[in-house]
Amino acid sequence: MLSNASPEKATPPNFSAAEFRSALGMFATGVTIVTALSETGTPIGLTANSFNSVSMSPPLVLWSLARSAGSMAAFSAGSHYAINILSADQQDLAKQFAGKGLDRFAGVAFTPGAGGAPLLEGAVARFECFNRSRYEEGDHVIFVGEVERCTYAQGASPLLFHGGKFYAEHPL
């Protein structure tokens, strides 16, 4: 007989953090740069591959950010952010926005989107999001954005990430 009762909590993992990271790396993802404006109006942004669709009606997407991230306060407090999906030729830009202790926007062309969030030139798609809700889970915060506007480049190839390396799209 099947029981509908759920266990009270998960069993402890039988793997190391390194094994978990390696297993997660087997899931190929696109590469995004999430951008916004700080309270002082300074552009902020970071490389993220934790992006996914949530709902078509209303149009919702999600991404996540480590609680320890220096930009957490700005992303939490801001009304809008943009998710820029990078093109296959923007690997250097992905690395620039993943770096620490540098001006991530140095030499980067962008236009202001909803709420001033930077829309990066050359991105294959852009989602301009209202900062709808946040959920604290583990060592990250999950951001759910309500998409107010989106654009995409027909036929463009996205930048992909798999197993710790960048790839370009190749149809089978």
Rank of each mutant, 00 (worst) to 15 (best):
S79Q: 12
K165I: 08
K100S: 15
N131D: 08
P59S: 06
L102A: 10
L120M: 07
V31F: 05
R104W: 07
L119P: 14
V34D: 01
I85F: 03
G138F: 01
S79L: 07
P59H: 00
Y152Q: 01
G138K: 02
A123E: 02
F130M: 09
P7Y: 00
R132K: 15
P13Y: 00
H170V: 12
I142G: 05
S71C: 10
V34Y: 03
F127I: 14
P58V: 03
S50L: 00
V144L: 12
A69L: 04
A82T: 09
V61Y: 05
T42A: 12
N52T: 15
E128K: 10
Q90K: 08
L172P: 15
G25P: 08
A123I: 10
S53E: 11
P43N: 01
A88C: 07
G99I: 11
S76W: 08
S50W: 01
S57E: 11
A17K: 04
A94G: 15
L119T: 13
E39V: 13
L159G: 04
E169M: 15
Y81W: 10
N84W: 02
F130T: 13
K95Y: 11
F127Q: 13
N4Y: 15
Y167W: 10
G70A: 02
S6W: 13
P59W: 06
A156E: 05
A74K: 14
P12T: 06
A114G: 13
N84Y: 06
A48L: 03
V108S: 06
E136C: 09
A156Q: 00
L93N: 13
G30S: 06
D139Q: 01
